[in-house]
Structure formats: structure tokens, C-alpha cells
């Protein structure tokens, strides 16, 4: 077997840190760096500072304190919103993976290559509809007198109209509808990169299709699953629109609680503290998933 060369072994080393190729590299990097500094690092820093200030009366007092953070743990309705967010997000991520994997597998393995492009376009069609419109459309499907209720009445599973809207279940359905497509794309991208020889080699060694899938295909597609799952987690836990439209505020998720502070009281310090806590949760999840988040395998 040919010895594998170290990655980028053939590429030329940078001539100097700031000269030649190095300068050109910085030139390419600078726009993205400026963008990140201006629209991520700076706002995040401002938010972090704001979270340490307090809203007293109708004014923001700039005395430094962790009062907004302690209030989060003291007021049950605040930390319950984080627990609700985590429960919904984990549920959405798991269901999306379970639905997206078979879909991606069929697209990658069973659909002829010339049809894959069309199949992928069909799979991502929901992305082309407005996010808000799509969420409201689900109300028409899930509400009493909606498509689902009428269907259940028609087949005799229920004798009275039933409503599935304005509930955690409706929020989860709305999210899953969106994120299944995202996960399908990341898993599909991973699956089509797998050489066919792996399956043949496993078969030669006596492994059946299930064993090959469990021991070869699934571990090798883990980066695709994890990238999609992480994106799903991040987008889902920070989303405000879908739970607001479909959840019917039967419970509050953390982004809704944050919006409540801003919309109703202009309490930016408390909202900033809650947003920092959300950011911390996402960072912890990133740290936990980092070993699998291999974008070069996508």
C-alpha cells in the first residue's frame, strides 16, 4: 500500500508571515475577519457588557454586577424556559436525524446519479418558502378543522375535530419539517463521498448489509450527522418565530423570554444576560461535539 503523504505536503510553504503568499492570504482573510469582528465579536462584547449592567426604573445603570445572572437562577420561570428550550431542541434534533438519514441514504445509494440533482431540489423545496409563511401554513394543517383533523375524521380515527396546533408537538413538527432538509443535505454530502470499495471489502470479509452499515457506513457518516445535528441544535435553540407561531405560548422557550424582556420593558441588560446564557449553552454543545465536527469530510 502506498504511504499516505501528510496533508498539504505538496503545497508550498508561506514565504514569510507578511510577505508574498502570506500577504495574499491575509488579503483573502481580511474581509471575513473584519466582518466577523464587526458583526460578531463587537456585538457579542457589547452584549456581554450590557449583561452586567442593570435596568433600574426606566433607565440602564452602568454599575457592574452579576445580578441579572443570579436572577436567572432565582426565578423559576426563567430557567424553566432554558429547560424547555433544551428539551424541544434535543427532541427536534433526534427526530430530524432519524428522518433525514434514511432519506439521505436513499438519495445517495438508491437514486440514479442523473436523478439525484432533481431529487435533491425536491428535498430542499421547503427552504424556498418564507419561514414565517411556512409556520403559519402548519397552523392550517394542525388546527381544529385543519387538514390533519379532517383526515382523522374521514378515516374514523376520531369522531370530534381535534387540534394539534398551539402545543409543543406543533413546534417540534414545524422545526422538524425545516431541519430534516438541512440534515439530509449534510448526511447526503457525506454519504456520496464514501468509496464504493468499502462496502465491497466488507462484503468480501463476510459482513452482511446491516453489519456493514453499523460498523462501516454509520461511523464514517458521523461527521455529516454531527455537522447537521449541531447546525440544527444552534438554529433551533435560538429560534423565536416557530415557537411563537406554532407553540401558542403554552410554554416559553428561552428566545421568547429574551424577546419578552426587550419588547415589553426594553430591559436590555436582562435580555443580554439571558442571551449570554444561551450562547454559553451553544458553546458547551460545540465543545462536546467538536471532535466529530470535521467540515473537511463534508
Amino acid at each position: 500500500m502506498q504511504r499516505q503523504l501528510p496533508r498539504h505536503a505538496n503545497s508550498r510553504p508561506a514565504r514569510s508571515r507578511f510577505g508574498g503568499d502570506g500577504l495574499r492570504a491575509w488579503g483573502f482573510l481580511l474581509p471575513a475577519l473584519c466582518w466577523t469582528l464587526a458583526f460578531f465579536v463587537l456585538p457579542l462584547a457589547i452584549m456581554a457588557v450590557y449583561s452586567l449592567w442593570q435596568r433600574v426604573g426606566y433607565k440602564v445603570v452602568t454599575d457592574i454586577s452579576v445580578q441579572n445572572y443570579t436572577a436567572f437562577f432565582e426565578k423559576s420561570f426563567l430557567y424553566e424556559s432554558l429547560i424547555n428550550s433544551l428539551e424541544v431542541t434535543v427532541m427536534v434534533t433526534l427526530i430530524s436525524i432519524l428522518l433525514a438519514y434514511p432519506l439521505a441514504y436513499i438519495l445517495a445509494e438508491k437514486v440514479p446519479p442523473r436523478w439525484q440533482r432533481i431529487a435533491l431540489i425536491l428535498a430542499i423545496l421547503p427552504f424556498w418558502t418564507s419561514y414565517v409563511v411556512r409556520s403559519y401554513s402548519w397552523i392550517l394543517v394542525l388546527s381544529e378543522g385543519g387538514i390533519l383533523s379532517n383526515f382523522l375524521l374521514d378515516i374514523g380515527l376520531t369522531s370530534e375535530p381535534v387540534s394539534f396546533a398551539n402545543s409543543r408537538g406543533a413546534t417540534v413538527i414545524g422545526f422538524v419539517h425545516f431541519f430534516v432538509m438541512l440534515l439530509t443535505l449534510t448526511i447526503f454530502a457525506n454519504l456520496v463521498q464514501l468509496p464504493k470499495n468499502y462496502r465491497r471489502a466488507a462484503a468480501d470479509l463476510g459482513a452482511g448489509p446491516i453489519r456493514t452499515f453499523i460498523h462501516i457506513i454509520l461511523p464514517l457518516t458521523l461527521p455529516g450527522i454531527m455537522v447537521g445535528a449541531f447546525l440544527t441544535f444552534v438554529l433551533c435553540i435560538g429560534d423565536y418565530i416557530t415557537p411563537a407561531i406554532l407553540g401558542g405560548k403554552r410554554e416559553l422557550l428561552l428566545p421568547q423570554t429574551i424577546m419578552l424582556q426587550i419588547e415589553r420593558r426594553s430591559d436590555f441588560p436582562t435580555a443580554s444576560a439571558l442571551a449570554m446564557i444561551l450562547m454559553a449553552v451553544v458553546s458547551v454543545v460545540y465543545a462536546a461535539c467538536a471532535r466529530w465536527l470535521k467540515l473537511d469530510r463534508m
Binding site: 397552523i139 388546527s143 387540534s163 398551539n166 401558542g248 405560548k249
Partner: peptide
């Protein structure tokens, strides 16, 4: 109650029979 919602969501709930 069956839901709590902002202007649009609560009006829609009434309009669609939710």
C-alpha cells in the same frame, strides 16, 4: 385557554377556528 399569542397569532386563532 388554548393559546396565548401576539396580534397576528391570536387573531389568526380566532379566524381559523382554533
Amino acid at each position: 385557554s388554548v393559546m396565548v399569542g401576539d396580534v397576528v397569532a391570536s387573531s389568526t386563532a380566532l379566524a381559523v377556528g382554533e
